[in-house]
């Protein structure tokens, strides 16, 4: 605990030192300036609404990405042809720069849908690939055991497949939640929907309010850590049954 505190003090101190060296808060605000910007922002209801709506958009994308990713994994593990058909699609999604999708989505979709769409595209290939690995590496010996003891499909799923897939799924969720969050906010910065963290970042940037830019970033980091704590640790410990 004390050690953790020392680490935090060290980095805050380094930040303050850099601020003194740079000497211009428009380039680098101090920790205190950031804090006061944060306090000022959090006085407005729109701040909390922006956080809520941004969270909802990214979480919607995350959940949809997981659902579609798991479905694609199941399909591609059951039909070899489907696997061949889907694999170039997933490779293309993975290799395409996320900005290209955001810009395309600006043409295709309504403003509010763009962050959701972006998050889906980030999450989907990671979940599909990991869950596929989980399915394919499920022990053939255990599956034969289940078949031999005449287990129902439901029991096979619950007792053999899901526990085998869970660590792969947890790893995918762990990696993709952070990426979805970043990509979703990046999309918001480019399409600036009303009441969004992205719009807050964008406005702070065009008005050169670097302290607010930092304050929003602190908000994003905090939220990202909270989400990871709340959600991912539950999946890993198996309290969320998926």
């Amino acid at each position: 605990m004390l050690q953790k505190l020392m680490v935090i003090i060290f980095w805050l101190g380094l930040w303050a030192l850099l601020y003194l060296l740079v000497g211009r808060s428009i380039l680098l605000p101090s920790p205190l300036q950031t804090l006061s910007a944060l306090i000022q922002l959090s006085g407005a209801a729109s701040f909390w609404l922006a956080i809520l709506l941004s969270l909802l958009r990214v979480m919607a994308g995350f959940v949809l990405g997981i659902i579609i990713g798991v479905m694609l994994a199941v399909i591609s593990c059951n039909w070899r042809f489907a696997k061949q058909l889907l694999s170039p699609l997933l490779s293309v999604i993975k290799a395409t720069p996320i900005v290209s999708f955001i810009l395309l989505a600006l043409v295709w979709l309504k403003i509010g849908q763009i962050p959701v769409f972006t998050s889906i595209l980030v999450v989907l290939p990671i979940v599909a690939a990991n869950v596929s690995s989980g399915i394919r590496t499920t022990s053939a010996q255990l599956l034969e055991m289940g078949q031999a003891f005449n287990l129902t499909k439901k029991t096979m799923l619950k007792e053999i497949y899901l526990p085998s897939i869970r660590p792969y799924f947890a790893a995918a969720a762990n990696i993709s939640i952070g990426l979805a969050w970043k990509a979703g906010i990046a999309a918001e910065v480019l399409c600036t929907p009303l009441n969004s963290i992205g719009r807050g970042l964008y406005n702070a940037k065009i008005y050169l309010q670097t302290d607010q830019l930092f304050a929003w970033t602190v908000v994003m980091i905090t939220l990202s850590m909270v989400i990871e704590k709340l959600l991912i640790e539950r999946i890993i410990k198996g309290r969320v049954h998926v």
């Binding site: 010996q141 255990l142 034969e144 055991m145 031999a148 003891f149 005449n150 007792e159 053999i160 526990p163």
Partner: peptide, 16 residues
């Protein structure tokens, strides 16, 4: 017909 097995490997569920 109900069949029961002891395999060469134990084939137990590691998470149970």
């Amino acid at each position: 017909v109900r069949c029961s097995f002891i395999f060469q490997e134990n084939r137990l569920l590691p998470w149970r």
